[in-house]
Simulated scan of single mutants.
Amino acid sequence: MFAIVRTGGKQYRVAAGDKIVVEKIEGEAGASVTLGDVLLAGDGSDLKSTDGLTVAAEIIAQAKGDKVIVFKKRRRHNYRRKNGHRQRHTILKIVSIGGSDQKQAKAPKAAKADADAPAAQA
C-alpha cells in the first residue's frame, strides 16, 4: 500500500518501511509522529478513501542539509557579501499506513454520550 502525504509544503510518495527526508519536525530521535495530511492512498492501481487516514512514522534523526553559499556582488561598487546556510531537516521511517485520526475517533464517542444524557434525564 502507498500514500501521498504533504508535510513542510512538499508532497512525498511513501510506503511502509520507506525512509524520507522532510523539513524539520519537532521531536527527538526515536519518537513517533503522525502525518495526517494524506492526499492519496492506494494499493497497486486501486485507490482508497483518505477520510481519516493517517501515516505513522518514526523519527530516525534530526540533521542538517548541505551548505549553500549565498554570494552577493554589485559591479564597480566594491560590494561583496558572502553568507552560508544549512537547512535543518528530519529523517523519517514510515512505520505504517492506515488507521483513523485520533480527533475523528473521539468525536463519535462524545456524540454517543450526548445521546445517552437526555434519556437518563427523562
Rank of each mutant, 00 (worst) to 15 (best):
G98D: 03
K48N: 10
G42K: 07
E26I: 05
A56L: 03
R86V: 06
D43S: 09
G27F: 06
R75E: 15
T34H: 00
V55N: 02
V21H: 07
K112E: 15
D18C: 10
K10M: 11
G17C: 07
N83A: 10
D18A: 11
A111E: 14
A111L: 10
K82C: 03
D37C: 01
N78L: 07
R80P: 03
A57M: 02
Q121K: 09
S32Q: 13
H85N: 10
L53T: 00
D114V: 12
V14F: 04
V68N: 06
E26Q: 14
K93Q: 14
G17K: 11
K82A: 02
S96N: 12
R80D: 12
P118S: 06
D116C: 06
A105I: 11
V68R: 14
R80S: 13
A57Y: 00
V55Q: 03
G52R: 02
Q104A: 09
K10R: 15
D114I: 07
V70H: 12
G98Q: 04
N78V: 08
K109N: 12
A29M: 06
D101G: 00
A63P: 03
I59Y: 01
E58W: 01
I97S: 01
R86G: 07
D116A: 12
G98H: 03
A3N: 14
I97A: 02
D51E: 15
G30N: 10
G27I: 02
V21T: 14
T90D: 06
V22H: 04
T7R: 01
G27W: 04
I69L: 15
T54H: 00
E26T: 10
I25E: 02
I20S: 02
S96T: 06
N83E: 15
I94T: 02
I59F: 03
T90G: 07
D18P: 09
E28Q: 14
L40T: 05
V22R: 07
L92E: 04
V38A: 01
S32M: 02
A31E: 15
V5P: 02
L92S: 05
I69Q: 13
Q104K: 09
T90Y: 07
A61K: 11
K48M: 11
R88G: 10
G84T: 12
Q104D: 09
R74T: 14
F71M: 14
D18G: 08
H85L: 11
K93R: 15
F71N: 13
V70F: 12
R13Y: 13
G44L: 12
E23L: 08
K73G: 06
T34P: 00
R6L: 08
A56Q: 05
V55R: 02
F71P: 06
V95C: 04
I4M: 09
K67L: 11
T34R: 00
G42E: 11
V38P: 01
G30Q: 05
A113R: 12
N78F: 05
I60N: 06
H77G: 04
V38W: 01
V70Q: 14
K19N: 14
G8H: 11
K73R: 14
S96K: 11
A29L: 05
A107W: 08
S49A: 14
G42V: 09
D114H: 10
